[in-house]
Design a binder for these strands. Structure first.
Lengths: 107, 107
DNA sequence: GCGTAGTACTACGTCCCGTAGAGGGAGGGA
DNA sequence: TCCCTCCCTCTACGGGACGTAGTACTACGC
């Protein structure tokens, strides 16, 4: 569901239908999905003639980060979970995290 | 559903029912839930007489960390998401992360 | 043998999701 | 003007997960 959108660029309408023609979906299906995503706040839409133009409400990265925070919210002990997470990421990714945190500190 | 368990300690059986007596659930309900959680791999169970003794398969923290990793897996650009995440956590939590990463480095 | 505790199996209502059809309004050509 | 086409909104249906629970089977103790 998200996938269709996720990687796609800026904005569209039923062009989405064309873009995922390989899935051979009814046009209404695409519209329903876009509509539901909008309702849930994942997409934003703007009128364009009689059609709508959809746009991701947040970048994919922001969305993922939000999901991660949401998971984090489920625990009582955030620190423990964070530590656990830090231990779980691969070395390369730990590096990325470290770097991001360092830059953060410098501001 | 998870909540019942989440904070609870080591292991139990239908004692769980007693522990959450405030929710006034049928004993079978509790069992079904425990059973389903077991099926999904969140719990482990061991025979104890004719009863079962349930135990979390992973610590809550580990579970949360896993959820976070799962979210991370949904993106194409893990680094970007990680960076985003690092920026999103509060200062105190950034500190926790930093510390965990540093300790990791030292090993 | 019988009651009780505890289990396994099955069920029902609800909600979300993927999918789609039926119907309504607006623009364009005959 | 009327009809056709496009795109939208509303409604629906099957499937799966979840919270809840009832019924049926089994084993232990008196």
């Amino acid at each position: 569901m998200d996938v269709l959108w996720a990687e796609r660029g800026p904005l569209t309408a039923r062009e989405v239908g064309r873009l995922i023609a390989d899935r051979d979906l009814a046009p209404t299906t695409v519209m329903t999905v876009l509509d539901r995503l909008t309702r849930k706040g994942f997409l934003t839409r703007v009128r364009d003639g009689r059609a709508w133009r959809y746009e991701p409400a947040a970048s994919r990265d922001a969305y993922i980060a939000e999901l991660m925070l949401e998971a984090l919210d489920m625990t009582g002990d955030r620190s423990a979970a964070l530590t656990r997470f830090a231990q779980a990421v691969s070395g390369t990714e730990a590096e990325v995290l470290r770097k991001a945190l360092t830059e953060l500190e410098e501001e």
